[in-house]
Computed example of a mutant assay.
Amino acid sequence: MCSGGLVGGDVLDDVASVVAERNRQDARLARLVRVAELEQAPERDGLKSMASWLRGHCRLAAEEAARLVRNGRAVEHLPALGEAHDAGLVSAEQVAVAAKAVTPQRLSAAAAAGVDLSVIDAVFTQVAVEQPHADLVQVVQRYLDDLDPDGPEPDPTEQRSLTVVRHADGSRTLSGSLDAVGGEKFEVALESFIQVDRPAGDERTRAQRLGGALVQLCDNALAAGSLPVLRTVKPHIAVRIDLDDLADHATGRNAATMGSGAVISAARARWLACDGTVSRVVFGPDGVPLNLGREQRLADRHLRRATELRDGGCVFAGCSAPTWWCDVHHLVHWIDGGETSLENSALLCERHHTKVHHGFRVERQPDDRWHTYRPDGTEITTPAPLLAPVA
């Protein structure tokens, strides 16, 4: 007898029932996403795609948002599989596997080869409903191999990918893959740092030394000043710290904020300042001239840095574009008498900078929060966090 008072068989029946219900809800969600995509609904909220809307407004991970979009497209091309998904017999993950067979390129290849897609749909559906998940993976892969038995010469740029996951403490986890040539270049570059710096007593693992070499490679590239200029500013590491914390010798946990929003200690900020440039940014009329008045139309590096520190990225609702994708926008346009000042500035990515020049509007409220409005005056809001049900 389990703690809930159900015998084992009853619990397993409930598990199967909930899985089927989840599959049905996943199917409904995928179809709704597809309808929204076809209607270009994200444009109403100033976003380009359903994937970006799902990330910004529903707080989905990038891969999950992309999978939802792909699944919504897949059930259109594979109606039998879609019906099984609607009925709860097929999971979202199974649909995602089958979706690889109905990308635009593979649909074109199938049409050119005279493939009857309804037959493929029936086979995929039968295997998905009756066989283990691994069998569906194999069946889909065999179809892809038969569709293009020789396979084109791979484009190396399409074989290169890198995913960077940022954690709450500012650390990153990297995962990715490189083609043979790209991988060779990568290893040769890192190995040069590892071999030239082998101090006595270094007990770091190979993985730790490779990580250090990657950071050193970035250090050298940033210091050389030869990286592409981003939004009129050379790439740089920005850290915001109060003067008192910078001058103090204490560790000062959580005293400094990096450009990405990660919080670090005052000690680590002082370490970065040893071989960096320290700028005094004052959010007021003294020190760095944040208010440039009407004499200068474009924000200089001081004003841009202050705007980056305040806004942290694009302020348009639902957008998570980092500072280096953004322009400094005049809230009251310069041509209309607006001053070039921090108070009259907002950080906007290129897409949303264009949007606010075509009817959308961003506004900073007295609570220091940004609000975004559609051309019809209604506000764009992201859903509030879900609340736990009251017992």
Rank of each mutant, 00 (worst) to 15 (best):
T277I: 03
W271C: 08
Q105V: 11
V11R: 15
F283P: 01
A99D: 08
T232V: 03
R59H: 07
V15S: 04
T173E: 14
F186P: 02
P385S: 07
R369A: 10
D336R: 08
V69Q: 10
V33M: 06
G8F: 12
S320Y: 00
P383V: 11
R294S: 07
R297F: 10
V390Y: 04
V315D: 07
C2T: 12
V90W: 09
T232D: 15
D219W: 03
D179I: 03
A30R: 05
L210Q: 14
S345H: 02
L147W: 06
H302G: 09
K234C: 06
T257K: 14
A65P: 03
T323S: 07
P42K: 02
A98L: 09
A213V: 08
A101I: 05
P152D: 12
W370T: 02
G82E: 10
D275V: 09
T378F: 05
L12Y: 12
A84C: 09
R231C: 08
R160V: 01
A213Q: 06
P366C: 06
I335Q: 15
S192M: 10
G56Y: 04
R172P: 00
L290W: 01
D14S: 06
A61I: 01
T157L: 07
A61K: 13
V140F: 05
D248R: 14
K234S: 10
L89D: 10
D45H: 14
A346L: 03
D197L: 08
R31D: 06
V362H: 06
V281A: 05
D148Q: 11
L243E: 15
G5Q: 11
G151C: 15
